[in-house]
Amino acid sequence: MLGDQIRTRRELLKDADRRYSLRQVAGRVGIEPAYLSKIERNEVPPPGEETIKKISRDLELDPDVMLAMAGKISSDLQEIIRKRPLLFSKMLRALKEAPDHAILEVVREVTDGDW
C-alpha cells in the first residue's frame, strides 16, 4: 500500500541521514508530522496529487508509481488523454497486453540532454 511504501523508503533513508525523520520530511513537504504518520500507517485516505508528488520528490520515489498506488493518475496525463481521447484510449487499449519491451519499442526516444 502507499503508506507502507512511503514509510519503508523514509526509514531506509533515515538510517543514513537524520534529515529523513518524520518531522523533517513533513516539514519539507508542508504537512503536519501527525498527518504524515497517519498516511504511513494507512489510517487516512491517500493525500492529494500535489502532496503525493512532494513526498515522492523528497524521498526520491517515482511520482507516477506512487500516484498509481494511491489509485490516482497524474493530472498532466489526464490532460493528454482529454485532448485526444479517441487516439489515446485506442492506443492504451492496444498496448494493454503488450510486454514492456514492445511498449518501449513503440514509444522510446533517444534522450537529448545538456551539451
Partner: peptide
C-alpha cells in the same frame, strides 16, 4: 545502445548529455 541502459557505470556528464 541507449545511454540510460548502462547508467550505473557511466560518468555523470555523459548521462546529462543523453543520447546513445
Amino acid at each position: 545502445e541507449h545511454i540510460e541502459d548502462h547508467k550505473a557505470q557511466l560518468p555523470e556528464d555523459w548521462l546529462k548529455r543523453g543520447g546513445v
